[in-house]
Nucleic acid binder design. Sequence first.
DNA 1: ATTGCCAATGTAAGCGGTTACATGGGCATG
DNA 2: CATGCCCATGTAACCGCTTACATTGGCAAT
Lengths: 364, 364
Amino acid sequence: MPRSPRSARPGTTTIHDVALRAGVSVATVSRVLNGKAVVREETERQVLEAAKALRYVPNVAARSLSSRRSQTIGVVLPDVHGEFFSEVIRGVDLAARAKGYHILVSGSHSDLGEMLDVLETMHGRVDGLVVMAPEVEIAALHLSLPPGLPLVLLNSIDPERDAITIDNYGGAQAMVRHLAELGHERIAFIKGPRQNADARERLRGYRDAMGEEGRPTSPALELEGDFTEDSGSAAAEHLLLAKPRPTAIFAANDSMAVGALAALAAAGVSVPGEMSVAGFDDIPIARYVTPPLTTIRVDIADLGRRAFGLLFDAIEQPLAPAPRRDCIKTTLVARGSCRSPHPSKKTRPRPDRELRGRRKGEES
Amino acid sequence: MPRSPRSARPGTTTIHDVALRAGVSVATVSRVLNGKAVVREETERQVLEAAKALRYVPNVAARSLSSRRSQTIGVVLPDVHGEFFSEVIRGVDLAARAKGYHILVSGSHSDLGEMLDVLETMHGRVDGLVVMAPEVEIAALHLSLPPGLPLVLLNSIDPERDAITIDNYGGAQAMVRHLAELGHERIAFIKGPRQNADARERLRGYRDAMGEEGRPTSPALELEGDFTEDSGSAAAEHLLLAKPRPTAIFAANDSMAVGALAALAAAGVSVPGEMSVAGFDDIPIARYVTPPLTTIRVDIADLGRRAFGLLFDAIEQPLAPAPRRDCIKTTLVARGSCRSPHPSKKTRPRPDRELRGRRKGEES
DNA sequence: ATTGCCAATGTAAGCGGTTACATGGGCATG
DNA sequence: CATGCCCATGTAACCGCTTACATTGGCAAT
């Protein structure tokens, strides 16, 4: 079996072996394999044949050492779990693989220091980064980030950097309009954490749409919340005491809406009979609570997919000046938790088509 | 600013720069940084100081080229989503990071060819692999896998390879015992896909425990299923026609149990009044369905964690002969969907503590 | 026939580390 | 004081690939 003296270690075929077998130089092999220069057709054929016969796989480390490219991007996420996490990864992964990139993942970062460590060790290992970080820490992040490295921010904007965002504003507006259309006048809103950009945008969308629809807004209708179920419950309990009592509650995320549902059930308030409830995100359980939750769906995989798209552009064409932007549109999903507040014009609750979708069970 | 002539490109500090600044040779710097040899304390101090001052970060490609180690492992999963996916990654990630390893992720593989491609391109890029593949494809996988590469199988066993498994057998037994203890005689079982190892083990656990508890088993009590909600519904509908009708349904996974719940609700059969229902996996929605589902919890993050543990051992100490094994234990989580079939000895359904846990809402 | 040019290919210098081997100084021993 | 040994360190050869530059041969123009 032909094997160059250089690669004595068995099991490793190098570019030299291929060159030897094809009767050409390593340079030619490299050229053929990378398509970076003109090679006679006959030569190319021989090289490809030799490579295939030898089951040659280029050594990535060597390639990346000399070319200064790793064909890998890093994805760094904070402490988010479940559906969101997996969908982001899936989106990025699919898009990346299509372009021949690999992804280096690091999740579950609860504090900044840890995140910076990871970023540090990823340096040199990746050609670009997709990062999701709490707003407050963006500044600190910049300082310790390699200056030339393409970076796409998820979920938090920075005027200087490329970023991809969710149309929180439009989604919130759509929900308010939906509720207004159903006939609701007093629509309460449960806010998210003040420092969360998504939460702020959703609040803004709520306020603007309320104004546009000629609905009254007031501090009494805006409850504090922190995206947890408990805060949603607490807010709902407060609202039950308000007079006049609102007829609809719009929570800035599904978890709080679920909390609100629980509180209302505990208080014996019927949903959607006496009170409509809406959320935001369309988390998986949204369709399983009672009644199924009307909410705003965000296509998270698409978020990942586009994040990679932006990053890819930035890597391939680093010169483009203005920060790149992309925005994920949202969809309103009407389920059973909202209906008209006027018993007379009661809307017939149509069975939710999606409730019994054929989702594959997660294998154990 | 000191910069060796070799590294003309700005922004990149090499080991030479550090050596120069510390007044030693590159070999010494390397030795200090890797702790692979004895170095005078004074020298070590100077090197570390220089490295820190220069913000030196070793070039991974170079290191991996000469050392033939990438400090990276690959995680290749099929088309699984959501909680399961994210938890596996989280477990592996946390364990890997603790040992200084990175993880290269690739998910959403629906067909074997795609999976093999990924495995191919990961070759040389990773020191080991955590792979989850459908049973049937394991063989094909072996053929095209680099022979020396440490590999840990998730979720499917192969006598030759290291693998980590879930205690499906024990979990199923525990559930049957639980139901038997509540007083159920006729306990039906909804099976999973025949080619799925988890499903087979759960079935085995069900049968053995039924025997041990002196409960009758019969083909009529074992329904076909494929892990989807729909198959769970269909099975439940079948069971309602059986005579005598069973008093409990144990589904091989939660999705089918959820489907069964829906079918029972549609048929006006009260759960757990007339029929108890149990699942397996404890997927997130299990606690949100009505009534909350009694099920078997599997600590998926632990699965990932231990998978890395096994892999790490295999990488560090490749000589160990026997295939390494590890098994994840399960926990029974009693919620509202099961209770005694005898109205007389009705067990008081205690409120499920976990129903209103303070789970952080997934951000946006 | 000589010259010039171009396309196709070869040669070899890196890329930035690791590490086998060489070197040199200090100290105990004969 | 010469000898030998060992510890700490330096020198330089790789690791496998990319690529700037050199080389070659063929053909058109002179």
